[in-house]
Amino acid sequence: MAISLSACAGTSTPASDSSSGSVDAKTATSAADFGGLSDLVAAANKEGQLNVITLPPSWANYGKIIEGFEKKYPKIKINSANPDGSSADEVSAAKAQKGQTTAPDVFDLGTAVLQQNLDLLAPYKVKNWADIPSDFKDADGKWYYDYTGLMSVGYDSSVIKTAPKKIGDLLGADYKGKVAIKGDPTQANEAASAVYLAALQSGGSADDIQPGIDFFGKLKQAGNFLAVTPTQATVASGETPVVIQWSYNNLAWGAAGGSAGNANFKTVVLPGTALGSYYNQAINIDAPHPAAARLWEEWIYSPEVQNLYLASGAYPATLTAMEANKTVDTKVLATVGAAPKNFVQLTADQATKAATLLTAKWASAVG
């Protein structure tokens, strides 16, 4: 199915005072604990900064999301670290920079990494908590889904003349030295999801991703696997002409990227079983700017930002509620199309099991 959517070393100086009146922002579990949203804004303004991490501007419209937050809350400066990093990098930064003003305040994590680091997360429930489906969030508020896409193949149509129709097509001679994924699957959820897709397309399942590892071993043996982490720039230059990644990212790197994109870069969701994976929002339990972190989550789950996710081709967690409440951008939804009803998403247990297998088998398969 072809897709055509519209676009998505610190110091140890003490952090800002994290309390607002008698409220300790680090332990606040809702805006009501501050006295209401306006009091949360006041506390966040007092802190004056927010640290985000691994949020590329072209990923799920994060460039516009960050810009919108700073416009709405001009007294808060966003510090965006390591935009091309992985979920594992987020966790490493939180641990290495604990107690420093540079530590991440908030996370956007893949499920496998999230489940291995639940002790790093602070419970917090946004004002429209009820709009997030119960199976899309932790009951105590430690994490909540934010958006999903479908795993897809992006290809430079000036180089690859015929769109791939199945994963096995990527083993052909036309793809020699051309197929890239977003980093190390043992570290990055998006790269791991490329392996999961290959497994689903090669006789495996969410409970058995070994066929996906085997596929990439064959891709390596054929000389088709390109050991370069792709970026929008490498796609624009032609260095990485084929990329397996989330649909909203492939789309953002094509014509939707404007002058920074590659007008010849097309996106295909392969026929057969589709793979999706919601990412998870969470607050660092040791956030140096805890009020701003909580205000960020309120911003993320506002209809304004959920519509920005949608405009990038990423389906937001509150979409069903937004349709019912008539807060969804109907023009964008009509362009993007309804959210997929049936796709495979690994459960927390499946993702943990898959991550263990990848850690044990990936290096030998593609080494």
Results as ranks from 00 to 15, higher is better:
180 A>F: 02
179 V>D: 12
200 L>K: 01
214 D>P: 02
168 G>A: 12
123 P>I: 09
155 Y>D: 08
251 L>M: 12
136 F>M: 14
189 N>M: 13
187 Q>P: 04
136 F>H: 15
192 A>P: 04
247 S>N: 14
225 F>S: 02
140 D>F: 02
129 W>R: 06
156 D>K: 05
190 E>D: 15
166 K>H: 13
237 S>A: 14
177 G>T: 13
152 S>W: 04
142 K>S: 01
242 V>M: 03
158 S>L: 02
155 Y>I: 00
172 G>R: 05
128 N>A: 05
211 P>R: 07
216 F>D: 04
182 K>F: 12
212 G>V: 11
160 I>V: 15
174 D>H: 07
195 V>K: 11
217 G>A: 04
240 T>V: 05
210 Q>C: 03
251 L>D: 14
226 L>S: 03
191 A>R: 02
132 I>V: 00
199 A>P: 13
239 E>Q: 15
159 V>F: 02
244 I>D: 03
133 P>K: 00
235 V>K: 12
170 L>M: 06
230 P>L: 09
155 Y>V: 03
216 F>A: 02
207 D>A: 15
221 Q>V: 11
130 A>L: 08
199 A>W: 12
231 T>C: 14
169 D>L: 12
159 V>P: 00
220 K>V: 02
222 A>V: 01
122 A>Y: 01
228 V>L: 11
122 A>G: 05
224 N>M: 01
155 Y>P: 03
133 P>Y: 13
131 D>Y: 10
221 Q>L: 03
204 G>T: 01
205 S>I: 11
182 K>L: 15
213 I>T: 00
219 L>V: 08
236 A>Y: 00
196 Y>W: 11
203 G>A: 06
155 Y>A: 09
240 T>S: 07
176 K>T: 03
194 A>W: 05
161 K>T: 13
139 A>Y: 00
133 P>R: 06
181 I>M: 09
137 K>P: 01
132 I>W: 00
172 G>P: 09
183 G>S: 07
187 Q>K: 14
231 T>K: 10
190 E>K: 11
142 K>I: 12
189 N>E: 12
130 A>S: 15
237 S>D: 15
149 G>M: 01
